[in-house]
Design a binder for these strands. Structure first.
Length: 393
DNA sequence: TCTGGGGTCCTAGGACCC
DNA sequence: TCTGGGGTCCTAGGACCC
């Protein structure tokens, strides 16, 4: 049996926990009203009753709920609370799969002898989380992860939903299509276009038909989903496959010096994470979003891994000018993929002294930062550019 | 409603190889 | 000489999720 656990209105709940004055009030975490181009990340249930929800533009949230308490996310704090919660899970099972900062799957198979039947264990875990962290969770229990995940969604907030063995199909059959995890806006449109509006209609469709509508993978995924079955890739092992950073600027970027500085800043951010987490990245990708929201990307795979901010920056600049159409830029992003653990033996570069030196300096800075997070070390250019970064955030 | 940031996986076409 | 089949890797874009 699998238990899916989801923290309720996580970011907003942590804020209410840390500042009891906020309890019972509409807390909206994301951005401050009036700041251009922000969205709601999470909001408390009190705010939801005003119609506010995740991904809503912050100014719209403000119109709906002017008395709301608007806060900027404190990711570091949320990650702290998140690990407290995950640690509780490990007291109940060695098999815990953390799926994101606020949710995890717990395999409760074989824990009966220690903790009793799974549905009882679920309530024990729920109480323990509340006691140790002050947070409430929503839970779903089922014979596979996919159904458990949907069940926990049905139990929000602070609930528990148990789909007993052999009733998975009945459970799924009664759901509206938009509650099926993996069906988003576009897929729903495609399905509606060919006359599918309910789960039972899709249950009658053949696999080849679904594949012809949605493509091979999505077709198979949906075919299994409407039968309460889990697809192979649904909760595959979580390991880093890419590291990236992107910024939507408060005002569109037009000046090439500012654009290049922005790219350097992003390269800096990504490189430090790469070093800190011990990755070698062989592919660099760059993302540009223009003022009209049209988005393009370009990537290049290198024969050797990125080893310094400078190398990442220079590659990004090269890619940028291959793609840039001269229009005002709303967002820039840099990332790296094709990752390998940097502890693996690496074929050393033939003429690599320059890069090695740079990397050694960056390693030193990264470890200093590790010891003293408040330390700010940056290049002269980025110091001058503090203006744009502040404006941009 | 004027649309964040960090990710994952899939698709389709092209290059290249045997 | 007008053109196979299988496989891998790369690229750009898209859909989806939290």
């Amino acid at each position: 049996m699998y238990l899916h656990v989801d923290l309720d209105a996580f970011f907003a709940s942590v804020e209410q926990l840390d500042n009891p004055d906020l309890k019972g009030k509409p807390v909206i975490v994301g951005a401050l009203p009036g700041t251009n181009r922000g969205v709601v990340s999470t909001c408390s249930y009190e705010a939801r009753s005003f119609g506010v929800h995740s991904a809503m533009p912050i100014d719209k949230a403000y119109k709906l709920c002017p008395q709301g308490i608007f806060l900027v996310p404190r990711m570091k704090r949320y990650h702290e609370k998140s690990s407290e919660v995950m640690n509780v899970f490990f007291d109940f099972s060695p098999d815990v799969k953390q799926m994101s900062v606020d949710e995890a799957f717990i395999d409760l198979s074989g824990t009966e002898k220690l903790f009793g039947p799974p549905e009882k264990t679920a309530f024990t875990i729920k109480a323990k989380i509340k006691e140790k962290t002050g947070l409430t969770v929503s839970m779903g229990l089922a014979s596979n992860r996919y159904v458990a995940k949907i069940a926990s969604g049905m139990s929000k907030p602070d609930g528990f939903f148990y789909v007993k063995e052999n009733s998975e199909l009945d459970f799924i059959t009664t759901l509206p299509l938009n509650k099926i995890w993996g069906i988003g806006k576009k897929t729903l449109e495609k399905l509606n276009k060919v006359g599918f509006y309910t789960v039972p209609q899709i249950q009658k469709a053949s696999l080849p038909l679904l594949e012809s509508i949605l493509g091979k993978a999505a077709g198979l995924f949906l075919y299994k989903a409407v039968r309460g079955q889990e697809a192979e890739n649904f909760s595959s092992e979580v390991q880093s496959k890419s590291i990236s950073a992107e910024t939507t600027y408060k005002e569109d970027l037009v000046d090439t010096y500012i654009i290049e500085t922005a790219l350097q800043e992003l390269a800096h951010t990504v490189m430090f994470r790469l070093i800190k987490e011990g990755w070698n990245g062989f592919t660099v990708f760059l993302k540009i979003r223009y003022e009209d929201f049209s988005t393009c990307s370009i990537q290049e795979t290198l024969p050797i891994p990125i080893s310094s901010t400078d190398m990442l920056y220079k590659t990004a600049i090269k890619l940028f000018y291959q793609r840039y159409n001269g229009k005002p830029i709303r967002l820039l992003g840099i990332g790296t993929t094709n990752l390998e653990k940097s502890s693996l033996p690496q074929q050393s570069e033939l003429f690599d002294t320059e890069n090695k030196k740079k990397q050694q300096i960056e390693m030193a800075i990264a470890s200093l930062k590790e010891k003293n997070p408040n330390l700010t070390i940056t290049t002269a250019r980025l110091m001058k550019a503090t203006d744009i970064s502040k404006k941009g955030k």
